[in-house]
């Protein structure tokens, strides 16, 4: 199918010409992005002196791989990575299981309290994290479970999920409300019970939305800083974001900006690869599902 499309496109030059303005706009933006991110990557191979004299792209003193060695060695990067990977994957899966059904009924049915729940969720997102996280910590720390590694991890995952519930639900609302009711009607005529209809038919149809929100959730959890900072009690359970900020701050206080950018790239790469992988999935999901993009 993909190959067929390519062949067709290659022949159709008029169509490509038609799209030319689009290509130009996107290419300019992409070029700009490349310069900016390229600068970050180039900076991670240079020295602080070059960064602050505008000579990042010239590499006059060669490539400084030692920035990476230093960033990697000064903290427990591999432990942080594993932790974040565990937290993010479990949280994302749980979030879909919890929020997709809720978003579905909120978008489909009118019932007392529907608006209240929606407004409550939105209001919750407006409250700054500090006001949510610190009182919660006061509660949880009183139970004296944070000193047990496994319990501490479980608490963290529970919080990651809970804190993203309003966001994920509100996000998915529109994706369900825009799906045609005719699918459910058809399913009902065929004798399919509503709950089964949801899991078998509606959920797969909302796939673009679900995958998009999963990407966002994943990156949210991966980059979540404040809550992890307050709740992660020991080095064993720390996430990448805390480790990264620790590294970044260390480098900044000592004026080692090249090292700081190296730390950033180390943390950025896996997230980016994951993103690439997930975005492939979107395409697969869209073309595989009942709806076509």
């Amino acid at each position: 199918m993909a190959r067929e499309k390519k062949v067709r496109e290659r022949v159709n030059w008029r169509r490509e010409l038609h799209l030319a303005p689009g290509y130009i706009i996107l290419s300019l933006w992409v070029l700009f992005t490349f310069i900016l991110l390229g600068w970050v990557i180039a900076a991670s191979f240079s020295t602080s002196k070059e960064i602050f004299s505008g000579g990042v792209f010239r590499f006059e003193s060669g490539f400084h791989l030692e920035n990476y060695a230093k960033a990697w060695n000064t903290s427990n990067v591999s432990v942080f990575f594993t932790n974040s990977l565990i937290y993010a994957s479990i949280s994302c899966a749980l979030l879909i299981v919890i929020c997709a059904p809720a978003a579905y009924v909120l978008s489909r049915f009118t019932f007392v309290g529907n608006r209240l729940v929606q407004s409550g969720f939105v209001a919750a997102m407006g409250v700054p994290a500090t006001m949510i996280v610190l009182p919660l910590f006061g509660l949880v720390a009183g139970w004296n479970i944070l000193n047990v590694t496994l319990a501490n991890r479980a608490v963290l995952i529970f919080l990651y999920v809970g804190i993203n519930v309003p966001y994920t639900t509100i996000f998915l609302l529109t994706f369900f409300s825009n799906l045609s009711r005719s699918f459910e009607e058809a399913a009902a005529i065929d004798g399919c019970p509503p709950m089964k209809t949801f899991w078998k038919i509606m959920l797969p149809m909302a796939q673009p939305g679900i995958i998009t929100v999963t990407i966002f959730n994943f990156i949210n959890v991966w980059n979540e800083y404040f809550m992890s900072l307050i709740f992660a009690n020991s080095d064993k359970v720390k996430s990448v974001a805390i480790g990264l900020y620790g590294m970044i701050n260390s480098m900044r206080y000592t004026g080692d900006y090249a090292g700081m950018f190296a730390a950033v790239v180390i943390v950025f790469l896996p997230t980016f690869l994951l993103y690439l992988f997930l975005s492939e999935k979107i395409i697969a999901g869209v073309t595989g599902g009942g709806v076509k993009g």
């Binding site: 729940v117 409550g120 969720f121 409250v127 949510i132």
Partner: peptide, 21 residues
């Protein structure tokens, strides 16, 4: 269905957000 589908999300929300809010 409404109750079953909505409860987990609302419970999570209540635990995490209601007291702090």
């Amino acid at each position: 269905m409404i109750v079953v589908f909505l409860t987990p999300a609302v419970v999570m929300f209540s635990i995490i957000f209601l007291y702090p809010i």
